[in-house]
Design a protein around this nucleic acid. Structure first.
Lengths: 342, 342
DNA sequence: CTGAAAGCGCTAACAT
DNA sequence: ATGTTAGCGCTTTCAG
């Protein structure tokens, strides 16, 4: 059980440690016969070189990390999947750091990961998605970025110089709005999302702007924020339906809230899309699981993760890459939207 | 940008490296004044000790890993969440290794993780959930288990001596069956799941056994396996409904297939639970998101993850722990089940 | 093609 | 209370 080292192998093979190292890494020519001899002994003992020792010298660990708010929200596993797949191909192993949306935990992880000498970090959501990220938190990331590659996904730190990948959420909101307009909807509401988060307000603003161009608007009483949960969507939608003059369509901040909205609507005895059209956002697996299937905006989640790793990898390799990479969202029309009732 | 070391700190503070190490780890008394002096310099340079070097000596990395099939299946993030939460409290960081159900990738990760000297591994699903795990694969795990702590979650390798945590799936299936029996159902079907997986067959057998005690059975034509996806559930359910004499209730291998079953049922113009009752398994967030809300069996997912880490932690600490820990499943009655139509 | 030796950055005796 | 020194297990010159 005493962990076997390269020295043990060397001794047993009557060669020097450097020779063993060479066959291990194929870093210099070794005579075929000695190579085989060494290999045999390695096999025999199931020898596993200690990656820590190697990393200590080579100054690279083959490890990257992703810091994200909530892996139980189906949006994130999807991104992770894209990222991990790409990372494995490139020889990295992934630390997954779940913060629960707690910014202080983000800070803790930032420290730990630097100590563990990860080769790079993907920072997804959290503080970088705040409407106003406190200077101190921003500084922390910028500081970290000086010591190791970081790529921000779906968020930003103004003039941090940090690389980022994101989907154009304003464009996505416009897509959804246009879709509803085309269906003849004029009475549109917005439901869900924390007002402190950019992901919420970017959409709201984009929708407002577009509506304005058509002489329309979302009045205050039809702009009901909350958080990103199913319950929140349900709650806000219920409030909407109790109003004198309910909207004919509602855009939700994400699929979770949209599902909540669907539930509230059905409980009120209304039909979708007969009475009310509902649009989600993210195109998580939930969207097609629910009945009626949800019309939603796809963020190209898998691609988001994949690209983040690509950029990070370039950065780690010391290469130059585009600072900004924007992905275009796509409207996925399913069953939850239809012509406006009139 | 040249990474600063404990030596740099020592020199600047006019002390030895051991003193710096001592203030860093609080491993021996240091005069208050020198401690402050050293601390100041550490702060000033934002010095982060190199965890690789430390781990090399201490033979522990503060890192554990979880190997699982598919993080995009909502069951797994839930387990991960429980595990990660507990792990962070205990000072561990988590590698997440997603195998996509590919057993060779499981092997690859096993090797990589051992090289990286993780303190322990949680192995969730995959080969350990096979009805007949090939000897070679089993051996690989057993071998790994000799070198580092491993805990198996929801699966097993016969007489491997490996520790494991699991929910009693047979008991869960019995719960579901009893529930349907109580509601007066006699014509019961089973849908979904790969027949190679224990998670499927354990349930099937438990249900058959129980039905037999009541003079009932699931005839061959009502036992429609497939895989674990929504589509599969939908497909099998459709086949069921085309039969001469459709069942009045169906138990699905998991929530995903149950949702597929719901969709197929509704598309056939039948009502749930009016015409047909449907039971899922896992109680993923999906279960309460769907309409009608799904009656399902909870595996206590969060707890599963938490306990896995607890046991792993004990193992790492060299302590003795129970080899087997079984969690009792719980029936969650929602809206998708009701009295048998007659 | 192969060996000897000097580290990588840190901890842990062992001295003082 | 603090310094000196020998490793941890590996890679990498530098010689041969």
């Amino acid at each position: 059980m005493t962990p076997i080292t390269i020295y043990d192998i060397a001794k047993e093979a009557n060669v020097s440690v450097s020779t063993v190292s060479r066959v291990l890494n194929d870093t210099a020519p070794v005579r075929a016969s000695t190579r085989e001899k060494v290999m045999a002994i390695i096999e025999k003992h199931q020898f596993q070189p200690n990656a820590l020792a190697r990393s200590l010298i080579k100054k690279e660990t083959g490890t990257i990390a992703i810091i994200l708010p909530d892996i139980t929200n189906p949006f994130f596993p999807e991104v992770f999947w894209g990222a991990e797949n790409e990372a494995r191909d490139k020889g990295y192993t992934f630390f997954l750091c779940n913060t629960g949306g707690d910014h202080s935990r983000e800070s803790e992880y930032l420290t730990i990961l630097r100590e563990k000498r990860v080769d790079g970090i993907i920072f997804l959501g959290g503080r970088i998605n705040l409407q106003h990220c406190p200077e101190e938190m921003a500084q922390e990331l910028i500081e970290a970025g000086k010591h190791l590659p970081i790529v921000l996904v779906n968020g930003n730190i103004a003039k941090s110089g940090l690389h980022r990948i994101y989907t154009d959420e304003a464009a996505g909101a416009v897509l959804a709005t246009q879709h509803l307009l085309d269906l003849g909807h004029r009475e549109i509401a917005f439901v869900g999302g924390l007002k402190e988060m950019a992901t919420t307000m970017v959409k709201v603003k984009a929708i407002q702007k577009m509506l304005k161009e058509h002489g329309l608007e979302i009045p205050k009483e039809r702009l009901l924020l909350g958080d990103f949960s199913i319950d929140s969507g349900k709650e806000q939608m219920a409030r909407l339906l109790e109003q004198q003059n309910p909207p004919t369509a509602v855009i939700c901040v994400n699929d979770y809230t949209a599902i909540g909205a669907i539930k509230a609507t059905i409980e009120h005895g209304l039909s979708i899309p007969g009475d009310i059209s509902i649009v989600g956002y993210d195109d998580t697996p939930l969207a097609s699981a629910v009945i009626p299937e949800l019309t939603t905006v796809s963020q190209n989640t898998y691609q988001l993760g994949k690209l983040a790793v690509d950029v990070l990898h370039d950065l780690i390799g010391g290469g130059k890459t585009k600072k900004q990479t924007a992905l275009q969202p796509e409207l996925i029309v399913r069953q939850s939207t239809g012509p406006a009732r009139r």
